[in-house]
């Protein structure tokens, strides 16, 4: 490890290793409950990665929505479909999928490292949350309202789907 490594880089490397390890565990483990717990771990470390990118508001939202709501939803789904005994085996496409996923990772990394990125040196806004609110409620107010309609449609759709047959 080089001597001039700073705190931000160190935390990035730790978080990156934990995130990738947890994601690999999600797809590698055969126990679905453990997969869900590893998924929560990766959600939390991704929230910490947002903090290293100075996106505090998104880190909070990540914890609330992903580690809170979606994780609970997934665990409910696991319990309601009682297939823990079967576990999460890989299907027939396992080896081709591994090859294609490796190819995708290689191609993306090749393109990312080969491109010239216009990294801006402009200073960050003083308050992340204020800047996001400003963008969300001025520039993106119509998509924001549409998102609420989408959520309403999802709620109604989910209720209708799981309501079951009459009586």
């Amino acid at each position: 490890m080089p001597a001039d490594i700073d705190g931000l880089s160190l935390s990035f490397w730790i978080l990156a290793v934990v995130t990738v390890g947890a994601a690999v565990a999600v797809v590698a483990t055969r126990n679905i409950f453990r997969a869900a717990i590893y998924l929560v771990l990766s959600f939390v470390t991704i929230a910490a990665l947002y903090l290293t990118l100075s996106a505090e508001f998104l880190a909070a939202v990540q914890i609330l929505i992903y580690a809170g709501a979606i994780a609970v939803l997934l665990i409910f789904g696991i319990m309601l479909t009682r297939e823990q005994r079967a576990g999460s085996p890989s299907g027939r496409l396992s080896f081709p999928a591994l090859g294609v996923a490796g190819l995708v990772a290689f191609a993306l990394t090749f393109v990312i490292l080969g491109s010239r990125w216009n990294v801006s040196q402009a200073p960050l806004p003083a308050d992340n949350t204020v800047a996001i609110a400003d963008a969300l409620f001025n520039q993106f107010v119509l998509p924001f309202e549409l998102a609420s309609v989408l959520l309403l449609a999802a709620i109604i759709g989910a209720i209708v789907l799981v309501r079951g047959s009459k009586e």
Binding site: T19, V20, A23, V24, V26, V27, I32, A35, L74, G77, I78, T81, E83, A86, G87, S88, P89, S90, G91, L93, S94, P96, A97, L98, V100, A101, G102, V104, A105, L108, T109, I112
Partner: peptide, 20 residues
Amino acid sequence: SAVLFSIGFYGAISKRNAVV
């Protein structure tokens, strides 16, 4: 992010349990 995307891609294609 590319590595994470590929891991998720592998899981989405290869797994048999719909929740996973």
